[in-house]
């Protein structure tokens, strides 16, 4: 008789259930109408089933986004869990689409589903990749721009996981500042 360990047939549960959203820029529709929920998952196996099934970010048309958020949080500033929050922002050069975009986005996803930020993972709302002709962006969104300890810990771990060199600075910006900025740059509340 063969003994089968539970490891062989029970999927590995994640701490959180996650929802993957897709945004396609169709100017004839409203912003919200362009945002579609693709699927939700709450196990390691189902994460990969979804990830392996969809296009890499570098294959998306310009103007598209993927958003991975905890179930119950909508990927927009207005959500109750986002409105006092902000994001660690990674801006990529055009050359980095080929070299880094897919690698950075997968690393971001693994940080989220694996709860890489320890107790401060509770502050994480989700992550977004924006595919844009002028330069792609990846960000991790957190719930409260006043939670300095959580934000700095998340930023340090994230920068390390992406392999960003120490001399390169990444910044955290509040959504309020991003929404009300007048120029093309938003001031950083924190940097690591």
């Amino acid at each position: 008789q063969e003994i089968v360990s539970p490891e062989d047939y029970i999927k590995h549960p994640l701490q959180n259930r996650w929802a993957l959203w897709f945004f396609k820029n169709d100017k004839s529709k409203t912003w919200q109408a362009n945002l579609r929920l693709i699927s939700k998952f709450d196990t390691v196996e189902d994460f990969w089933a979804l990830y392996n099934h969809i296009q890499l970010s570098s294959n998306l048309m310009s103007g598209c986004d993927y958003c991975l958020f905890k179930d119950g949080i909508e990927p927009m500033w207005e959500d109750e869990r986002n409105k006092r929050g902000g994001r660690w922002l990674i801006t990529l050069s055009k050359q980095q689409r080929r070299a880094d975009l897919d690698r950075f986005w997968l690393e971001t996803l693994l940080c989220l589903v694996g709860e890489a930020f320890d107790d401060h993972s509770d502050d994480v709302c989700g992550a977004v990749v924006n595919v844009r002709a002028k330069g792609d962006k990846i960000s991790i969104w957190t719930t409260d721009f006043e939670n300095k300890d959580a934000i700095v810990h998340i930023g340090q771990v994230y920068k390390d996981r992406l392999g960003v060199p120490p001399k390169v600075i990444i910044g955290y910006q509040s959504h309020t500042d991003t929404a009300t900025k007048s120029g093309s740059t938003t001031k950083n509340k924190f940097v690591v």
């Binding site: 590995h12 196996e45 994460f47 589903v113 709860e115 320890d118």
Partner: peptide
């Protein structure tokens, strides 16, 4: 505690056959 999974553990499941 939290269910934390490190990157190598997670990556190990990318091409596993689906559970029955």
């Amino acid at each position: 505690g939290k269910r934390q999974y490190n990157r190598d553990f997670l990556l190990g499941f990318q091409f596993m056959p689906a559970c029955v």
